[in-house]
Design a protein around this nucleic acid. Structure first.
Lengths: 213, 213
DNA sequence: GCAAATATTTCTGTATACAATACATCAGTT
DNA sequence: AACTGATGTATTGTATACAGAAATATTTGC
């Protein structure tokens, strides 16, 4: 995997996170500290720290003095996530300058290409991963550290959302084409068009007139 | 204070947070776990959990295996915070419906009034607190749990920012007048005007033409 | 046979002990 | 005198022990 921090807490955090985002740990599942500790061959301490951090990212909810369980995403929450996500990505587009774009466009292109490649070889999970990276790079291009930090929190939920939904189903091909188009719009400074396309890209439905981005 | 959770970690978290936001713990100050533990008369465990949670909120930065220190806010970061803040509050305004407003308008009005009162009696710290609550209520009125959660993360930094800046300095009077005006706009459904006013309220400068909210 | 009370078990919350790492101090060599 | 290496100290990271709360199983009374 891509874990390996310099301390156990980080490693466990990454492991648990990827298990949740893979669906190996399903929503609603209870996660007793000692069980996990035995499973991973460490003490409860790093487990506790990892679980508490996961709860900050909304992947786990802790009932005090009771138990912790993997959160499930409701329909309402799914919509809420998408709405906020669009807003943040559009903000990033607004903040991107020709200079900041210059620095990051290589990464954007690479993520897009790798997402395409993963789809070509039929590795859906991998394509999810690279898609996530693409959007993270888009956010990073804003060079607004606060935005980046907040989006990383949201990203965990976005990824969790993809397990439940059967995304890509309809317009699998369009998906990476849109990535390329987004890059092109950014290069040309067509921000308005870029935001509209982002809406369609994220919502998988056409942009409704009158919505403020 | 307003601490008192049902476990020590929460209490310590609230205590440390308020100390940072009061300026009692200044930016750059190192916070060794054992020193704090002795100070608060608890063991290192709850301290550790509190500090790690604070670092998720960006109030503390942890150098692994080294030390943790209270973060200082740079000029750049201050701007970044404001930009994201405006965006989130404007999103909330867009999401507010007459129904959701109905439920929350009492709280908004109360926060505004209490902020005014605190200013009248010259209690600046208290007015900060109620101002924060006002904006939190505005966000809550969106009834978008994801937005609310993200904003709560941002709120910690917003409050930290106020220590450094000498806000209110210029337009102290205008400040609560604007709160009232915001409520009025919301009631009348004048979202565009509300967003523009929010910009001025947060940035303490007039809304520039051509900026996308 | 069923409900309420009680015992047992399980799990979390906290304290403490130990290990590992980073940093400072100081001695020795050139 | 400056540099390198060793030693000591402070601080974090991890394991473990124990107390108390919550959940579960068991017993008791009817």
């Amino acid at each position: 995997m891509e874990s390996k921090g310099q301390n156990l807490s980080d490693e466990i955090y990454n492991l648990l996170k990827s298990q949740i985002l893979n669906g190996k740990l399903a929503g609603g599942e209870k996660i007793p500290e000692e069980t996990l500790a035995r499973e991973f061959g460490v003490s409860r301490t790093p487990i506790r720290e990892a679980v508490r951090r996961l709860s900050e990212y909304g992947l786990v909810s802790i009932k005090p003095r009771c138990y912790a369980e993997v959160t499930s995403i409701s329909e309402k929450e799914a919509k809420d996530i998408a709405r906020v996500r669009i807003n943040l990505e559009c903000l990033a587009v607004n903040l991107i300058t020709p200079q900041s774009l210059e620095k990051n466009i290589m990464n954007l292109a690479r993520c897009s290409a790798e997402c395409q490649y993963a789809l070509d070889i039929g590795d859906r999970a991998l394509s999810f991963e690279h898609d996530s990276r693409f959007h993270l790079e888009l956010i990073r291009s804003s060079e607004n550290s606060v935005l980046i930090n907040l989006y990383e929190h949201l990203d965990a939920k976005i990824q969790q959302l993809r397990i439940n939904q059967n995304l890509y189903g309809i317009a699998l091909k369009d998906y990476t084409i849109q990535h390329e188009q987004i890059i092109r719009y950014l290069r040309e400074g067509k921000k308005e068009e870029c935001r509209v396309l982002l809406y369609e890209h994220i919502m998988h439905s056409p942009y409704p007139e009158g919505l403020s981005l």
